[in-house]
């Protein structure tokens, strides 16, 4: 696949944005060079900005604007209601579901197109074979995958399974059945008072020396520094990823998508695409996982190029 055939995908919004902001974001997205849009509340079922019907209306609008729509599930689903919601959003198999919980496969298999989500943490071909058997047509590589492992996994795949890789944005690192935002305020998960909504960008978690480590948002913990592989998009594509995933950020998502598209189409050098990303990320970015190191590291690509297949 040539770099120009690579498709761009918007990951679900990871943060507790309110309804108006979510709708405005996706209205803007209609003018961005994005091919696939993942929708849905992926952290806590209690804070979904839209009701199921509104999500479906939004999905239809995006679809008529020529986008492939996928509804992403949270990981670690707990109640039958949470599982059922994903069936509802699939709308009889019209929309695909990104399963981040294995419990979804039995109910979706054969009825709904399934994307195997990044939180299934797939690291070997035996798992991919099983996921194909369970109805997956695309898999999203775990966010912490490195270049060599991605290349090795994608190389052995049958054509019925597409590969998607994360290239930009705050990286969701961990989920807990516990809500740390509520706990910090002395509230239970049941009576949380939607404490997370007070921080639509999450809360920055620093070491005692002031180093940005994580972003805490309810049951979710994200990377304290966003990831950007904008300088390495050709290498990610060469590793076999046909779809590149971008996490929505507070401001500048569209600019980053345009830079990425231009870079893949050969109109913008990787270094300038990365510069465009850095322009909207004042705190800098990280790329350690891709280069096989600790995620928070920033590896200078020209000194330590990613291994190519």
């Amino acid at each position: 696949m040539s770099a120009a055939d690579i498709r761009l995908c918007l990951a679900p919004i990871a943060f507790p944005w309110d309804r108006d902001r979510v709708l405005a974001f996706y209205e803007d997205a209609a003018s961005w060079p994005v091919d696939i849009v993942c929708l849905g509340e992926t952290v806590c079922p209690k804070r979904s900005p839209l009701a199921a019907r509104e999500w479906l209306d939004l999905a239809r609008r995006l679809e008529s604007a020529g986008r492939e729509v996928v509804f992403s599930s949270p990981p670690g689903l707990e109640t039958p209601g949470e599982l059922h919601l994903m069936t509802l959003l699939a709308d009889g198999g019209h929309f695909a579901v990104e399963a981040n919980d294995v419990g979804l496969f039995p109910r979706l298999k054969g009825r709904v197109p399934i994307v195997a989500g990044p939180h299934l943490h797939v690291f070997n071909a035996a798992t991919l074979r099983t996921l194909i058997r369970w109805g997956a047509y695309r898999w999203v590589a775990p966010y912490e995958i490195d270049a060599a492992t991605l290349a090795e996994l994608a190389a052995g795949l049958p054509s019925c399974l597409e590969t998607e890789a994360f290239v930009f944005g705050a990286m969701p690192l961990a989920y807990s059945p516990r809500c740390f935002t509520a706990a910090r305020r002395g509230r239970t998960r049941k009576e949380c008072g939607h404490a997370c909504l007070d921080s639509p960008a999450g809360e920055s978690v620093q070491s005692l020396e002031g180093e940005d480590l994580f972003v805490q948002d309810g049951k979710q913990t994200l990377s304290g520094r966003p990831v950007s592989l904008l300088a390495d998009l050709d290498a990610v594509a060469a590793s076999g990823a046909g779809v590149l995933r971008f996490q929505p950020i507070a401001r500048g998502t569209g600019e980053v998508l345009r830079a990425a598209r231009d870079s893949l189409d050969g109109k913008l050098p990787g270094a300038l695409a990365q510069a465009a990303a850095e322009a909207v990320l004042p705190g800098g970015s990280a790329n350690g996982f891709w280069h096989g190191g600790a995620g928070m590291e920033r590896v200078v690509a020209s000194l330590w190029p990613a291994r190519r297949p």
Partner: peptide, 30 residues
């Protein structure tokens, strides 16, 4: 991460698991 009954059932029926351990931090109500 078998946090729900359908995940437990999947491990049992599709992968032949005889026993499924539930994640440590799942609340008691669940």
């Amino acid at each position: 991460s078998a946090t729900n009954g359908e995940a437990v059932a999947l491990y049992a029926t599709e992968l032949g698991a005889t026993r499924v351990a539930i994640p440590t931090s799942l609340p008691l109500a669940r």
